[in-house]
Amino acid sequence: MTPAPAPAAWLNAVATATPSHDIHDAFIGWARRRLPDREAKLFDRMVERAGIGHRWSVLPIGVDGGSPVAPGGFYADAMPGTAARMTIYADAAPTLAIAAIEGLGDRVALDGITHLVVASCTGFVAPGIDQIIAARIGLSPRVERLLVGFMGCYAAVAALRSARHIVRSQPEARVLVVTVELSTLHLQPATTLEPLLAMLQFGDGAAAALVTADEGGFAIETPFAATLPDSAALIRWDITDAGFAMHLSGEVPGRIAQALTDPDFAAAATGGRALSQVDGWAVHAGGRSILDAVERSLSLSPQALAASRGVLAAHGNMSSATLMFVLAAMLDGTPVANGIALAFGPGLAAEGFGFRSAA
């Protein structure tokens, strides 16, 4: 007897949350003062081209609306140690994640959750934030948990891929997927252009999604992955005594563009789909130059990455949460018959999956 095919796994709904403290302009002023005049002018030009209007932080607003780098702010005097940053993460990450979960509860019933998958790379705590979240929202102690840690910007793919595998093997499963990143906890005292431009991209955000076998939303189709050779040094997190130091090479967009012009890599990075038939692109908004590289290399229309560019403008790059914000925007938009979700991260790797709207 031929076994029955595995059921489809559906991304039924996504909700997002950001803090209320916009730190983008304060960072720009702080960063340009750390550069010599010639580099500061180049920094200003890159700020204008970045396509980012706001980035949000869990760090508190100081006296008289002061930013984290203003007198009395978290970064005002000296760079805090990793312990101080992780103390904030242990409280603020679950709190922001729960705000997203509460928003999800306004969209879809969250009773009977059987599995919790949490992705985060901007902090560590034990018991893990998966356990903290589960306890705070009252999940049963029997709920199975998975914590996807330190994978970076494509961790949302790993989290949704795991949820898909769970649902296809256990059709009755109801999987709560959460991504939460507090990138602004990791400001570094850089005085050169490249690291300051990297930090210009990042903000805080969380997203929550429900994945089940119940038709509705987006069907999560076959996942795929590809890694560029000799590229491991291009995107890197280094854990230091003063937080996590992000290294994001200026070579990344060019390497992505070059790789996507290789038919073999492009086929691997898009799951072998015929690009002419793709009517929905959910691309991780890692930065304007990365989105431009994808658009040019795959010969996409100027509107193809509109959802990604909108998320970048409103929130910046929130690491693993960013792709979920893009998917949330697309769920509220035009139905998609043949979509591709794609994210880039440490490795340098591309990971993604196909998706389509319910009939």
Rank of each mutant, 00 (worst) to 15 (best):
I290T: 06
A313T: 05
A285G: 07
T87R: 14
M151V: 12
T82Y: 02
A198Y: 12
M318C: 01
H186Y: 07
A84P: 00
L348T: 06
T184H: 10
A84I: 00
A306R: 13
G345D: 09
H21F: 07
L331Q: 14
P195V: 10
F325S: 03
G128K: 04
L300F: 06
R174E: 04
D292S: 14
L210H: 09
A259P: 09
A226I: 05
V283Q: 00
F74H: 12
H186M: 08
R288G: 03
S120A: 10
P346E: 00
V177L: 08
R161E: 08
D204I: 10
G287D: 07
G73H: 10
R288F: 01
A242L: 14
A83W: 03
G250E: 11
R34C: 04
T18H: 13
I137Q: 04
Q258W: 09
P60Y: 02
P229T: 11
R164A: 11
A70S: 15
A233H: 14
P189N: 14
M79H: 11
V148N: 05
R34S: 13
V58Y: 03
D106I: 00
L298E: 01
I133L: 03
A209P: 11
A209G: 11
G316L: 05
R55G: 09
L196A: 01
T87W: 09
G112R: 14
L342H: 12
A268C: 08
Q201D: 01
V148M: 09
Q201I: 13
L210T: 07
M151L: 15
A219G: 02
T16N: 08
A321H: 06
R273F: 05
G103Q: 00
G216S: 09
G138T: 07
A313G: 04
R236P: 00
V58M: 05
T16C: 15
T191V: 14
A321E: 07
T114W: 05
Q303R: 11
M86V: 01
G345T: 06
P94D: 04
I88M: 12
F202L: 14
R288K: 14
I132Q: 14
D238P: 08
F218R: 02
R309C: 05
A135D: 14
V252S: 02
E181K: 06
A329Y: 03
T191L: 10
D332L: 12
P223F: 03
D230S: 11
A207K: 07
I88H: 08
G81A: 04
I290N: 07
M86W: 06
T18G: 12
S308I: 01
I28N: 11
G352E: 04
D214W: 03
F355N: 02
S140K: 05
L35H: 03
T184C: 09
R33D: 15
R356P: 01
A337P: 00
P127I: 02
F124S: 04
W30H: 15
G123Y: 05
P3K: 07
P263C: 10
F43W: 05
S319R: 00
I256W: 12
R49L: 10
G271F: 05
G345N: 04
L110K: 01
E215W: 07
A6F: 00
C121S: 15
R38M: 11
V278K: 00
V63Y: 10
A198P: 02
